[in-house]
Amino acid sequence: MELRHLRYFIAVAEHESVRLAAKRVNITQPAISRQIQYLEEELGVSLFDRGPRGLRLTAAGTLYLAEARKVLALLDAAGRSARLVAAGQEGQLRIGFVENAGWDGLVPELFSRFQREAPGVRVELAPLNTPAQLEELADGRLDGGFVYLFGPAPAGLHVRPLLEHDVVLAVPCAWNLPADAPVHARDLAGRPFVTFPRHTYPAYYDRLIGACQQAGLTLNVVQEVSTEAAILSLVSAGIGAAIVNSANRGRPPALARFIELADLSIPLPLAFACLDATHNPALDRFLRVIDSAS
């Protein structure tokens, strides 16, 4: 049995006429009559009563018509879904992002724009630091990720530079430091600091420590935690100050303040990374959204 047999049968059943059905499906009357006969022989039942007034569905034909329509509807739906997936309009994406980059600005704008353009794509967001994203990208567990890269990208990754953040000083409100004047790093000597362990992101940790030393500040680290959200929680609790990504301004803690550093800058280049060889049309569409926004 072929799909065309179902289409011919449905046409004849709906028109109750071989002549009209043949015209609809654009084949000759003898040809469509033969195909209906082949179908009945294969099924082993009569689908039509043939009388002087034309064709009428038998009980078996009535049931078969309903089921044939379901089959064709499912196939049509499958075809539409396949075309939407191929166009990046349906499917699934798993995108990583460094959490503080998602508070405001470009990253949430890109997610919002993509959802407007491809509402049929299910986007799963994974808040991960940069090294964890790079690991999951290499393993194929992420389709792409918003990362802060220091140095060359790992082999096999395609990187689209987006923008650059910097660092800012976060202090407890209880310290009563003036918020409208930049602070020199050397003036923070001896004050307690909260930072992250080196193994969390060695390249960034080394750059942070080096920049502090160059500015005349040796950090008096009293506690280490793995995320900037946790760091800012400890700053809010008065445990110490911290040097954090300026993107955190998009989510200012109630009990901490951000102050500019007069003589300490660490450019933080935000980029979107994905594998060089992509096989997900939804990712290709996401990349087009990124390109149109840059």
Rank of each mutant, 00 (worst) to 15 (best):
L134Q: 03
L134P: 01
L134N: 00
E136A: 13
E136Y: 10
E136F: 09
L137A: 02
L137P: 00
L137D: 00
L137Q: 04
A138P: 04
A138W: 06
A138Y: 03
A138D: 08
A138M: 12
A138S: 14
D139K: 14
D139Q: 14
D139Y: 01
G140P: 09
G140H: 04
G140Y: 04
G140C: 01
G140N: 02
G140L: 02
R141F: 10
L142Y: 09
L142G: 00
L142K: 05
D143A: 01
D143T: 01
D143C: 04
D143K: 01
D143L: 08
G144S: 12
G144R: 05
G145A: 15
G145S: 11
G145L: 12
G145F: 11
G145V: 06
F146P: 00
V147R: 00
V147N: 00
V147P: 01
Y148Q: 09
Y148D: 03
Y148S: 03
L149K: 06
L149W: 08
L149M: 09
F150V: 08
F150G: 04
F150S: 10
G151D: 09
G151Q: 09
G151S: 13
P152F: 15
A153N: 04
A153E: 10
A153Q: 05
P154N: 05
P154Q: 08
P154K: 06
P154C: 10
A155L: 11
A155Y: 07
A155H: 11
L157S: 10
L157I: 07
L157N: 07
H158P: 01
H158D: 12
V159I: 15
R160E: 15
R160P: 02
R160A: 10
R160N: 12
P161E: 14
L162N: 13
L162A: 12
L162H: 12
L163E: 09
L163D: 00
L163Q: 08
L163H: 07
E164V: 15
E164A: 13
E164F: 11
H165K: 13
H165L: 12
H165Y: 15
D166K: 10
D166W: 04
V167Q: 01
V167C: 09
V167A: 02
V168M: 10
V168W: 10
V168Y: 07
V168C: 05
V168G: 08
L169G: 03
L169H: 05
L169P: 00
L169I: 10
L169K: 07
A170C: 12
A170I: 11
A170M: 11
V171C: 04
P172N: 06
P172A: 06
P172L: 06
P172E: 04
P172G: 03
C173R: 14
C173P: 00
C173W: 00
C173G: 13
A174D: 13
A174F: 06
W175P: 11
W175A: 07
W175H: 05
W175R: 07
